[in-house]
């Protein structure tokens, strides 16, 4: 479920990035790299788990599924927070700078 949540986040971010490209004012690419990197790593985790559990892997207990989904949403939220910090620090639109400095007439 964590893998599935992250893959959906990665796909959505990639579509948003493609629609806005080649300009990257909102730095959505950061989210794409992060979610795809995590998705690939969790895919490996899932393959090893499948090798251990076989078909049982696809029939998780509802509580496990809910916990994994909760974890997946938390991971997506953490990714968004990291992206927001990078966006505000890099400030490609100069919004933070404009808030800190007032133009003199």
């Amino acid at each position: 479920m964590t893998l599935l949540t992250t893959v959906f986040a990665a796909v959505i971010c990639t579509v948003i990035w493609y629609r806005g490209a080649p300009e990257s004012e909102m730095k959505v690419g950061v989210l794409c790299w992060m979610y795809w990197g995590a998705s690939l790593m969790w895919l490996v985790d899932a393959i090893f788990e499948y090798a251990e559990l076989n078909a049982e892997y696809f029939t998780p207990a509802p509580t496990d599924m809910l916990n994994d989904f909760y974890l997946g949403l938390s991971v997506v939220a953490l990714g968004l927070v990291i992206w927001l910090v990078i966006l505000l620090v890099k400030d490609p639109k100069g919004v933070v700078k404009a808030a800190l400095f007032r133009k003199k007439n």
Binding site: T6, V30, W33, W36, G37, V75
Partner: peptide
């Protein structure tokens, strides 16, 4: 740099999972 971002991003989110 693409590889760096994939590796850093993935590792950061997986580290969070391990904290969880």
């Amino acid at each position: 740099g693409w590889l760096n971002k994939l590796l850093w991003g993935g590792s950061a989110l997986l580290a969070f999972e391990h904290v969880w």
